[in-house]
Amino acid sequence: MSAADWTAVDDYLVGALQPDDPALAQALADSDAAGLPKIAVAPNQGKLLMLLAQSVGARRILEIGTLGGYSTIWLARALPADGRLVSLEYEAKHAEVARKNIARAGFGAQVEVRVGRGVDLLAGVEGPIDFSFIDADKASNPDYFQGALKLSRPGSLIVVDNVVRQGAALNPNGDANVQGIRRMFELVAAEPRVSATAVQTVGSKGWDGFCLIRVER
C-alpha cells in the first residue's frame, strides 16, 4: 500500500460518512490563503476528536495548538450550549485566522483563543477540563501533558497528536520533537493517575498516530 492508497481510502471514508461541510471547508481555504502550514487534522480525525469529546460528556475543552481553527471547530461541535473551549496558540497570525474561522462557524461566544507560549498560558487556564487535545510543538509535549493533567478530573481524556512521526518515534537519538514525544511517553507510563495507549494511523496525513490518556484519579 502506498501513501496514495491511504489517501484514497481516507477520501472514500470521508465521502461515505461525512457530508459536505462548508464551514470546515472555508476554514481550510482561509488558512491556505493566509499561508498557514497544511498540518490540520484530516476530516475523519477531526470527527473522531468530536466523538471522543462527546463520549466523555465534555463541557470544558482545552486545545493546545490552534493553527487555523479547523480542529477547534470540530471540538466546539462536541460542546453543549453552555460549554466552553480554550485554545492556546503561539503564533498571533494563526490565532487571527482561527478566530475568524471559529466565529463564522458559529462558536465565537464559546471559544476563546489565547496567544502566547503554551507552557506559559496553561497556568491561566481554569479547570477542571474534561477533554484536552495537544497538537503543538512536540518538544514541549512533556510540559503540555503535565499541564493538562493538572487541569483534568477523574474521567477526563487527553489526546496527543503526531506521536509516531513517520516512525521517527523509534529513534532514541531523534530530533527535539522526537525527544519530546519519547519523554512524554515516559512520563505517561510512570504516572499512576492515568491509563493510556497509543495507536498508529495512516491516511491523507501520512503515517502517524495518537496517544489517548484517560485520567483515572
Rank of each mutant, 00 (worst) to 15 (best):
M50I: 00
K150W: 00
H94P: 01
G108Y: 09
I64H: 03
Q146P: 00
G69R: 11
G65Y: 07
A27P: 11
A92N: 00
W74K: 08
V160E: 03
I73M: 05
G116D: 04
A98H: 06
E89A: 06
G57A: 11
A42N: 00
A58C: 12
L122A: 05
Q26W: 01
A109Q: 15
A123I: 00
K100Q: 15
R104Y: 05
V111P: 11
V56L: 09
L62K: 05
I158P: 05
M50Q: 15
Q146R: 15
K138I: 07
Q54S: 12
G108R: 02
T72V: 13
A148K: 03
E126T: 15
V111Y: 11
A58H: 06
E89F: 13
E126Q: 14
G127M: 06
I134V: 14
S31W: 04
D135C: 09
L122N: 05
S132Q: 03
I64D: 01
S156E: 04
K100T: 14
L48V: 05
N141A: 11
S55N: 11
A29S: 14
F133W: 07
P43L: 08
L121S: 06
P128V: 07
L75M: 15
L79Q: 03
A76I: 12
L151Y: 05
D137K: 04
K38D: 14
A148R: 03
V97F: 10
Y70V: 13
A103S: 13
L149Q: 07
K38I: 00
I158L: 12
E91W: 13
G106T: 02
L51V: 12
V159K: 08
I64T: 03
V163I: 15
I102C: 10
S156P: 00
A34L: 02
G124A: 08
